[in-house]
């Protein structure tokens, strides 16, 4: 099968890669571009561990073809911190102990970032429903919801 040539914007960098037509974006990120932050928990779009942001929208990268990245803007967990400055969500996840094993964390952070980009003041219910596509088996979600709410407050300039 002939490879497809793809040009995309990945974490603000211009990136080109070759991939097979049937190769998922998740496989491209992990196997061709060395970005291992997105995880394959199911491969069927049910767990959200592979969440990335494509043109401002959270997607399961296991359900997107690598070729579909052509001309798009992709954000992954590797691009979330600005240099050594963590994103408020990243800081709050650590502060609130919102991760235990941490394998779902990159997906949660991507999904939560997309939420706060769209809605700076989500209610608890909005946070819970927005994150319902991301499975966490360790935490019971309590500390994740608190971390997202606290990060939102900080980003709004409110003292936590």
């Amino acid at each position: 099968m002939a490879s497809v040539s793809v040009s995309t914007t990945l974490n603000t960098d211009e990136v080109e890669f070759l991939c097979q037509a049937d190769e998922t974006l998740l496989d491209v990120l992990r196997n061709r571009l060395g970005l291992m932050g997105a995880k394959e928990g199911c491969g069927t779009g049910d767990c959200g561990a592979c969440s990335v942001i494509m043109d401002g929208r959270v997607v399961c990268s296991c359900l997107v073809l690598g070729a579909e990245a052509q001309g798009k803007t992709i954000e992954t967990i590797e691009g979330m911190a600005q240099g050594s400055e963590l994103h408020p969500l990243q800081k709050k996840f650590i502060e609130h102990a919102a991760l235990q094993c941490g394998v779902c964390t990159p997906g949660f952070l991507m999904a939560a970032k997309a939420l706060l980009d769209a809605n700076p003041s989500p209610t608890e219910e909005e946070i819970r429903f927005w994150l319902a596509g991301n499975l966490c088996r360790c935490t019971g979600y309590d500390k994740i919801v608190r971390a997202v709410a606290d990060a939102a407050a900080e980003m709004r300039g409110e003292a936590s």
Partner: peptide, 21 residues
């Protein structure tokens, strides 16, 4: 006390390496 976990940064930046990584 409740200090920050030492593996926190790796896990929120995608740098932590799991079985398939």
């Amino acid at each position: 006390s409740r200090p920050l976990r030492p593996d926190g940064i790796d896990k929120v930046t995608g740098r932590a390496r799991y079985g398939a990584d």
